[in-house]
Design a protein around this nucleic acid. Structure first.
Lengths: 363, 363
DNA sequence: TTGAAAGCGCTAACAA
DNA sequence: TTGTTAGCGCTTTCAA
């Protein structure tokens, strides 16, 4: 890495002594009215005469005045800013959710303060919430995953924070609102798809089982098999950590201890990629020897070899809905005329069938 | 300007919004000191007696007081919040950069207000800058790509905004600081790697050429061939749009019009995946018939079939550096004792050789 | 339709 | 070491 600062003459504007930005007072003075009248124009109030309004608007335009949002927040006791807690942005899932959040927040005129957890399983929750609180966010979106018991703080810390909050991808809970993918039914659908091919020996490559989402998907796989009267056994499942690398090694392990396996449900697409890489090396042909289906529906999975069947989940929409619901709850809280009842919203993932699970019916 | 402020401690709260959060008043009152003394404790000033400090700290702890950051920003005229403009979070590159930004900002005690452009090539730049300005961000990180002439606003709009700003991935410019991957030399290195295999017919599958990054990579490819005394011709290059799908169709086109191609430099890993998918379908063996190298170094590329050679770029670090440099410039601006000289920092991507370009030397 | 006054919660400059 | 005064820039009463 090379750094070469370039000693050009500085562009004058850059370090110009703060041309003291104009305030509402400057506008008022120039218009010969009080600040309150300007404020009324800014807030589109109706109790301003048309001509006064026009005059003020022209002056605002002329001197390039912009209200100070910080001062507005302080005065209004409302910031129109939401706090977002995310984790693992270097993976594609969390980013897609964040993308939905940014789009919807923009649409509804809200800013976003963002914090990314240093690790998925961070336990320093309180400082984050307090930081958001001190920054007067109107609401919080918790878009980091539920792992082990890292939701224990909900009932202990949340009450004293007293800010509307919504969680993404979390187990149903009676005291907070949640938006989530229906991992259980998605996994069940995926497994049923493999069963529908006439296969009986269907393994599972799960995500890390301290993750709620991974457990739900495993439960979905189990439910499908149970409904089909297939006995479950521990040798039919191996645990990965979401990465392609772990998928590869887990597959090696699984195919060793479950050699009769004809179908495999993998808990995400990345691990499925690793699994297919291992299968190739072991001479296991997909889909002929083994039908595979993943979970997530990342864009690239269509171009794996072979193209990967998967359960497509719309994480973008997850983010959109979270913002929508949260802002609704913020409004309700302000009106305080309605009793708060937490929502639980589930989005069903969609089955995408590709080459990796296209085989002739057996049996 | 009129003087205001609250000269007296309020005796009675006639109007008490539900859970009135405690303010610096409450602490001062309870401690029997002035607000100023509390403020001194909050800001770790030295001019407070040890016992007063302790007493105040205890009270703060006891009533769970947290300073209002919004009010602090207003008073200090400094928010300790940076604005971030990003685009395409649903792709992995921008997210990795953002992840670096969040980590470094956290480390340095800065908050982050984030805006995602609705499209890569958004032209509504001014409202975004003004929004940041009105929210009193201390600096701005522009992490959206340079496309066509979408940087024209730098000299027109930036001067009136007057906030330190740093750009990620942009052509060198004399008036602003920039942190970027060295796309040119990365592409040159990739192409030279293919040349070193003894191949002479090396094609290029480029990104969209209205992107600066895509053009730089194409130039790097051209430079390597020129240095090797290989003539360039338009039939040796086809343009994609970064997606795997475009990579697939572009490859079909390229292999038709450049059948003697023995090596291929693809401008990102996703398109390389698509290209390999197409190659498989056309019966072109990789690496034996065609050696391929990508660009990006996404985690999955190691598990493609075959494993993809690539130029690894550390986008996370890009974000870290951007924050570091920006905060440095903010400090300098406050001191105003140093002349501003824009920095241009380049990070070299790193060659990763995998199966897709491992062939016996020819010639 | 307008303006004066009193905040929002905190910091900074200056005294004491 | 502490308190006083005057803001930061805007909004919200309330009265005119």
């Amino acid at each position: 890495m090379t750094a070469h600062g370039t000693p050009f003459l500085p562009e004058i504007w850059y370090f110009m002594p703060k041309k003291s930005k104009s305030t509402i007072y400057d506008v008022a003075k120039k218009a010969g009215v009080s600040r309150q009248t300007v404020s009324r124009v800014l807030n589109n109030r109706q109790d301003v005469s048309a001509e006064t309004r026009l005059r003020i608007q022209n002056i605002i335009e002329e001197i390039g005045y912009r209200p100070n949002a910080i001062a507005q927040s302080l005065g209004r006791q409302r910031s129109n800013v939401l706090g977002v807690v995310t984790a693992g942005l270097k993976y594609i899932g969390p980013s897609r959710t964040l993308s939905g959040i940014t789009a919807k927040a923009e649409e509804l005129g809200n800013g976003l303060l963002i914090k990314e957890l240093a690790s998925f399983n961070a336990n320093n929750v309180k400082p984050i919430l307090q930081w958001f609180q001190s920054h007067q966010v109107d609401g919080i979106i918790w878009a980091a995953p539920e792992i082990e018991n890292n939701r224990d703080w909900i009932d202990s810390i949340l009450p004293e924070i007293n800010i509307p909050i919504i969680f993404i991808s979390m187990e149903k809970n009676k005291s907070v609102s949640i938006v989530t993918i229906d991992n259980f039914s998605g996994a069940k659908t995926a497994t049923e798809h493999l069963l529908s091919l006439g296969l009986n020996n269907i393994g599972h490559l799960s995500g890390p089982l301290d993750w709620w989402e991974a457990r739900q998907r495993k439960l979905g796989w189990e439910a499908a098999l149970t409904e089909a009267n297939i006995d479950l056994s521990s040798h039919m499942c191996v645990e990965g950590n979401w990465s392609s690398r772990s998928g590869k090694s887990a597959f090696v392990e699984l195919s060793d201890k479950y050699p009769e396996m004809e179908g495999l449900f993998v808990s995400n697409d990345q691990m499925a990629l690793g699994a297919m890489s291992a299968a190739l090396e072991k001479g296991i042909k997909i889909p002929d020897d083994l039908a595979i289906i993943g979970f997530d529906g990342i864009a690239e999975s269509e171009f794996y070899c072979p193209a990967l069947s998967t359960m497509n989940q719309n994480q973008n929409e997850l983010g959109c809905i979270a913002v929508d619901v949260l802002i609704g709850e913020i409004e309700k809280k302000l009106l305080a005329d309605e009793v708060f009842s937490p929502k639980y919203i589930e989005i069903k993932p969609e089955l995408i069938i590709r080459r990796s699970s296209q085989i002739l019916k057996r049996r």
